[in-house]
Write a protein that binds this DNA or RNA. Structure first.
Lengths: 235, 235
DNA sequence: CATGTATTTAGTGTATGCAATGTATGTAAA
DNA sequence: TTTACATACATTGCATACACTAAATACATG
């Protein structure tokens, strides 16, 4: 029971996922079945399955007879993703506003206040980023519609590595917190339309900020990989 | 060049997809790798890949060491899908309202009027259903956001067979046409919020109508498979 | 007869080998 | 030198064989 029916393919997939989100695997990097197989001490078969799944999830791209590569988001695609995500999160919060239980509301507020405390005390920006992700996730899951949740999280997954970028932009954190304030207020006031508008603008703004950042720091791809950057430019 | 780099796994996946949408494979049916392999004249390996992809896409469900089965749409899940779809279509039309080109608007109006003509002349209900699908598709694609379009169409695909059901419910067609009227009016008036509200209510109502229909005609699963039903109960 | 325990069996998970395809390297001609 | 082509190498796609799991059946036992 210790491994809840995790197949080798699952293990490999999770490992690759971690490396992508962790930054060890940057967008554009090639995934070669053979090497991965020997690295994880399994055969190529489960590695292939893992890659297939990740490709279906959009995290890596794959064409016949060519090596799979970690999905690279060109600016246009990324902007589209953020726009779509803004709409989906808007839809979710529209429903969540009237569906969040008291416990869920409390949990949401707790996260929000932990983030505020982190800002006040100049805490770890990575922790703040995690709280931000959790904040959005709680709101989305609060709509209690599995289809909508899955769809939204699927999109969120694709921009997740880039989304954490905002922590490097000066003033973004404070602005982020203010936005979250407004969202929470609308939710607690029961104003679904306002909540939708707030989160739409907020997520769109995140995308815009990220685009501006990329435009300003026109560097090689590897250089602007989130985690690397966070390490190099701690706040 | 005739086969644009379609791998065996792709071929099998597409074939299974067609059979699911076509009704040869009903929800709940088990997919056994071995039989499929021999049926398609390939080994189990590409079949496994196809199944993995379909599972990731949500069309079939799969647990370790158990046979994969075509995803069941129980009433609850279906209601969730319609609700999520209503939100996504709402988001799309919200954007489309300000983004549709004149040509796209004209095409949309043409479809709408063809549907009206079909109703007036008591035309083929299946043709009307097709026009309805096209109507929604045009609106969604008008948002010009690939990510949002793909996401929405993916959900729409899952309920597509069921959605056509409405043609069997008396009075639904006229109501459907009235809804579309309202949507078009809002779009041409440039009122994005109104358009969003109209299509949300419209798609939700489609889901509700379908649920009522299923509740009234409590039959075995196979009996209410769309294609079969439409054939058996032509208007 | 009920119940718990071997045993069988159907079906999935993984490893390995080979063929097909893509990629890089070297050589000859312009 | 550059370009076209041929050849060698690297890597993926697929088939086959085997291992493992889980469920069903047969059997023994109270």
């Amino acid at each position: 029971m210790t491994d809840q029916d995790l197949t080798q393919a699952d293990i490999v997939r999770l490992a690759i996922e971690r490396e992508i989100f962790g930054g060890q695997l940057a967008p554009g990097d090639a995934l070669e079945e053979g090497r991965l197989a020997s690295r994880f001490g399994v055969s190529r078969t489960p590695v292939r399955e893992a890659i297939t799944q990740l490709a279906q999830a959009g995290l890596i791209t794959k064409r016949a007879h060519k090596r799979a590569v970690v999905a690279q988001l060109d600016p246009g695609t990324m902007l589209e993703l953020f726009e779509a995500l803004a709409e989906l999160e808007g839809a979710a919060v529209f429903l969540s506003t009237s569906r969040l239980s008291e416990a869920e509301k409390r949990a949401l507020k707790d996260i929000h206040e932990a983030a505020a405390e982190n800002l006040r005390s100049n805490g770890d920006p990575n922790e703040y980023a995690d709280l931000g992700v959790a904040f959005h996730q709680r709101i989305v899951r609060g709509c209690h519609n599995t289809a909508l949740i899955d769809t939204t999280e699927w999109l969120a997954l694709r921009v997740l590595p880039y989304r954490r970028f905002q922590v490097v932009a000066p003033g973004r954190l404070q602005r982020n917190q203010t936005d979250h304030d407004a969202i929470i207020s609308a939710i607690f006031a029961g104003d679904a339309e306002a909540a939708r508008e707030e989160i739409r603008r907020h997520t769109l703004e995140q995308g815009d900020a990220l685009m501006r950042f990329i435009a300003l720091n026109k560097t090689s791809h590897a250089d602007f990989h989130p985690n690397g950057l966070i390490k190099e430019q701690p706040l």
